[in-house]
Design a protein around this nucleic acid. Structure first.
Lengths: 149, 149
DNA sequence: AAAAATTCCCAGTGGTATAATAGGGTAAAA
DNA sequence: TTTTACCCTATTATACCACTGGGAATTTTT
């Protein structure tokens, strides 16, 4: 039950851009240097994030991508679902067109629905800002640990 | 982020056996008739469930499989993990051998750990008996709905 | 003793999705 | 003129998934 690489990368990219400060325009090349993701692969991901309205772009030299909203206004769940399509643990929950023949009398459907809810509730509980705060906390810890060496 | 067919089938098979009553020995052919899963495919699944110590087998005519414990003593999570290996949403959490190079300074690891916990807590919260009770409730509803027609 | 039903076990197969890379080109802005 | 985004279309490699096949071993039934 894995999140795809694209989904993980998308989150890291969004966080990377957010980390550079409010309104900062960041090129894929820059992100590539920090995150070890090829520019070509990033293109595929960033395209989906732009179309979802999460990023706006600036062309030309010193161009790149910029967050449209403030970090606190992006739920992590939104980002993941934009890339993954859905986080549903079974296809039956993906939409009516995916309902299987057994749905009406399925003994396990309610269980899966509950899991779906728990997952979505969790990922929607955090925003980019929350992850940003975690980063700063981590850095602070590393710094104080460094001093004591 | 999908549970595999094997995982879903495993749960349905365990539930099917449980439904036939305590100590009942059920053949794959019987399960196949009710659950629409080929005997051949079930073999693979049931093998893993047996090796995990969840089922015991009886060979020969009128043979089949039997629950080792009472339904209330199987967490759904145990069953799923026995088949899926792990429910971790990212490989980094699957074990030390899967840690990526970025783990030490990963900005998103804590987020994924939290998701992993939430998922496992949910699936371990339910037992086969709980799903069994749900079934009976469903049946009762269907019956009363049938009467009113 | 023979036949049938079943579990047990290994091997294979076809399809699909994933994770990427490669390469082409156009458009816009510094 | 350069740098970047934008937008295609592949192609690859590989891994996993869902499922099938062929048999051997074991037990019950006939």
């Amino acid at each position: 039950m894995k999140i795809s690489t694209k989904g993980r990368y998308a989150l890291r990219m969004m966080l990377d851009i957010a980390k550079q400060g409010e309104g900062a325009v960041i090129s894929l090349k820059d992100i590539s240097g920090r995150q070890d993701i090829s520019v070509k692969y990033q293109e595929q991901i960033v395209m989906q994030l732009s179309r979802a309205g999460f990023l706006s772009s600036v062309r030309g030299p010193s161009g790149g991508y910029r967050l449209v909203r403030k970090p606190a206004e992006y739920k992590v769940g939104e980002i993941l679902r934009a890339i993954e399509g859905s986080l549903a643990p079974v296809a039956c929950l993906d939409g009516e067109e995916n309902h299987c023949a057994r749905c009406d009398y399925c003994e396990t459907l309610a269980f899966w629905q509950g899991l779906d809810e728990v997952i979505n509730r969790y990922v929607d509980q955090f925003t980019l800002q929350d992850l940003l705060d975690d980063c700063k906390e981590q850095e602070a810890k590393r710094e104080s640990a460094g001093k004591s060496q």
